[in-house]
Design a protein around this nucleic acid. Structure first.
Lengths: 252, 252
DNA sequence: ATCATAGTCGTCTGCCTGACGATAAACACT
DNA sequence: AGTGTTTATCGTCAGGCAGACGACTATGAT
């Protein structure tokens, strides 16, 4: 391995972000509209170049803060304040994934509670939360009647991988609490699972499971009635990060 | 995103390989001795630069073939011939991880059956299978009395991450068969689990579990007595890739 | 022949899950 | 005030699976 720079090909390295949240009972991802070619006008995942003196996780946290204002958690720490969970997802380096040059993108996955409104450098029209189902469909029309175009680059694949990671990870970890505000009810947590998995769960069995798993939830003592119906106990995320035995995702 | 190359810092991109196998009841990894600075003479994971026209997985497969002669599997296909399982692990890009220049390394994990002997460009003295426990200890003496030095660069972290990935993935997938030859017995598969997890498993419950999981193992009809004792049925890996319910790793 | 070794089949008990009945506590009506 | 609706929470019961472990089988070694 000589120092001669001609001995290896130069790459551009970027981070792309799959930022997920749950809004109106649907799993949504943050998308930004591209302002320049290639794929001008198309939706894409937020991201940018890694700077010369930055670690990959630093770059991802910086991009996340620039796009959403969220500050990232250390992935090993339990989710407790309203910062987002951030972890590395996978790296995409097909030689043709960017027509301009050789770009290797280190994708990261962020999970955030429902946020007021996206801001892409202050320009709200160029960023939005979209249901992942809508972003992943190849073509057709969205729920607002607008025509839908596929995501730019290989971002549909990255988004699909991120969604799959989130779906499987909430099975055996307490990560679903990252979608909730700092205090939440069992019902709100259940609706997170239902939105991410796209299934209906039995409220009684879910309640038994999450309250019976030591360290998963700690009661705050308060109650709320913001969902209507009988007041529900408020909880915050406990210290446990791994669920053992896991939460079982229903078949099919 | 302009085309101007000065707009983004150039990176070198490499692939590093965590190649695991089970030898003599121990989980072992392939290590190569560095022939030049930095870390000259120290052990490291095999790896190399990604070429200009190569995908990341192609580069990893090429390095794997160069180091071991194994040909890689498509990760989505079931393990069936004596090729190795290969999947992306994670990407490491700390600005200081290589003192010479900015290098981002996309680590891959390979699982292989026990191989005759390593060959690093034909030079056997510069490559070896070492128990991961020995490679991960910070200092001291190996089982042969040789002094042990930590792995070069951040390779100890990469190896630890790869081992952890393998340990957790054999819980819920049929990946453990990648450590076995094409035909194997239930006892041989059990010894793989025992070596990877470092625990003893009940042979009777293990037998019930693996033979009772549909699609995991298919009998070939043959038997063998190569382990001594009563002849055992030979199996090959079935089409199933996911184990549901998973194999449970004993506590502590 | 006897022993050691490994493989295979069963049994039993406890835990967890899925299905679902029942009760409790709020709000929106009339 | 009463009734219905909604959500939360507790209980019960049967089935499935895992851990513990007994019993038997088939080989090679002594």
């Amino acid at each position: 391995m000589p120092y001669d720079p001609s001995a290896f090909p130069p790459f551009a390295v970027t981070v792309d972000l799959v930022v997920l949240t749950v809004r109106r009972h649907a799993l949504c991802a943050l998308a930004v509209r591209r302002g320049e070619p290639p794929f001008q006008g198309r939706w894409a995942l937020p991201g940018g170049f890694v700077r010369a003196d930055e670690d990959l996780s630093q770059a991802a946290a910086r991009e996340l803060a620039e796009e959403t204002g969220l500050c990232a958690h250390d992935p090993s720490a339990p989710v407790q304040d309203n910062g987002a969970h951030l972890e590395q997802l996978a790296t995409y380096g097909d030689p043709k994934r960017d027509p301009r040059m050789r770009v290797v993108s280190v994708a990261h996955l962020a999970l955030a509670p429902d946020l007021p409104a996206p801001r892409a450098g202050g320009d709200a029209s160029n960023a939005r939360w979209a249901p992942v189902e809508e972003l992943l469909q190849q073509s057709g029309y969205g729920r607002d009647g607008e025509p839908v175009a596929p995501l730019a680059f290989d971002h549909a694949q990255i988004l699909a991988d991120g969604v799959e990671r989130a779906r499987s990870k909430i099975e055996y970890s307490s990560l679903a609490t990252a979608f909730c505000p700092s205090e939440f009810t069992v019902g709100e947590l259940r609706r997170v699972y239902e939105a991410v998995w796209g299934v209906a769960l039995d409220p009684r069995n879910f309640h038994r499971k999450v309250t019976g798993t030591p360290g998963f939830l700690v009661p705050t003592g308060g109650t709320t009635t913001r969902q209507g119906g009988r007041p529900a106990q408020l909880f915050r995320a406990g210290g446990a990060t791994l669920l053992n035995p896991p939460m079982l995702r229903p078949e099919v």
